[in-house]
Nucleic acid binder design. Structure first.
Lengths: 205, 205
DNA sequence: ATTAAATTGTTAATTTATAAACAAAAAGAT
DNA sequence: ATCTTTTTGTTTATAAATTAACAATTTAAT
């Protein structure tokens, strides 16, 4: 199927988070303007996103929360799920791991990699921790599709190469080093310094 | 002065990171296409960003690395610097704190807030940790401009309100809860689940 | 000296993303 | 039963971001 625009995908992910919350609070229907307000978006944009994913609401009643969660799932989730590995289990890696635990059943963190032998060979938050040298075997054996890189900057490049050679399909890079990946690997990068510098810039007169 | 587009600001922050690296490696000049390649951008875009910030290169020689770092500094940095407080010093907060230490002299993390009394009342990474109840006084006293929120979701809203009432100017929100802020407070939100879901979506066929 | 190649700076064109506009349908009010 | 209001769904318009095009300048080569 044709891919949706990246911005729409981001927003669908955000909407789902909120919708799950609504469902837990017993809310059955939601209007586009309600969802919009919860996300600092316009109602039109919400409706457009929903239209783009091929879902429909009920006029004057809004969107059925439960059904919409499922509809977003059909877009964002892989039928059999995707396996994720985290490389570098310092504070950031641990934060991400905790964050994910039990939240997205279709995105399973199945392996952690580190160089520190105090960490390898045991489980962290219920996920086995391997030495980074074993990335090739483990990625293959555990069918890992996606890698999250939270290693120190100087190891970023070799970590990415290791993952790519092992056959990973997507990388989320949290290091400060921009990576190069082949065309068939999807790369997303995030740097918190940039985020904070942006806040700093716009927060002043 | 007129504000630059948000996307340009983001890229300038990224360029600076790379330029600092170049400088440390003794590189004196850089071409737009070199900088572009390091960031998966086009050379035109790099030149355009540089133009927008009012900096100039030398034809056939490129941009003087040192001067460009200073030029970006004149855009991104506040003359007297800005003070930052981190609320919630779990793994994520600690990761951010470590990340910043010594990196951006104009963005000083001067206070940490938490509810855990095992953490408050002492220094973490050289930064004093206070109880969240003292946000009003400490923000005022330490002249804190920017707040980073890394508390558990259920405390996100009240944390933001506390910071806003204390007079904060910008917020970087890492919780999964979208916040509402008044017009004169700049808000930036980041959710790693969304990032990973985006990678998962685009990493498959 | 002239020409060729490389690179910046800027304007114009294109593409993408957002917002506005409005028809259609449903619910409720009179 | 008719009218009004509300809300979705979709098209059209606007705005923002990116890319393309190209003039101007510098360096080097012949």
């Amino acid at each position: 199927m044709e891919k949706l625009p990246a911005k729409t995908v981001e927003r669908l992910s955000e909407y789902r988070r909120t919708l799950i919350n609504c469902k837990e609070n017993g809310k059955e229907y939601i209007y586009s303007h309600e969802l919009a307000q919860l996300h600092h978006k316009t109602a039109v944009q919400v409706r457009r996103d929903i239209m783009l994913m091929g879902f429909s609401g009920i006029q004057r009643k809004g969107y059925k929360v439960k059904e919409m969660i499922d509809a977003i799932g059909r877009i964002l989730d892989c039928k059999n799920g995707q396996n994720v590995g985290i490389v570098g289990i310092g504070h950031l890696g641990t934060a991400i791991l905790q964050y994910f635990t039990g939240k997205r059943p279709k995105l399973r963190v199945v392996a952690i990699f580190d160089v520190d032998e105090k960490k390898t060979g045991r489980e962290i938050n219920g996920v086995p921790c391997y030495h980074v040298d074993t990335i090739p075997e483990v990625v293959e054996r555990e069918n890992i599709d996606l890698g999250i890189i939270t290693v120190p900057p100087k190891f970023a490049k070799e970590t990415a190469e290791g993952l790519i050679n092992a056959g990973i399909r997507g990388i989320l890079n949290f290091t400060t080093v921009p990576l190069n990946v082949p065309e068939d690997v999807y790369l997303e990068e995030y740097d918190m310094i940039t985020s904070l510098e942006k806040v700093a810039y716009f927060a002043r007169g």
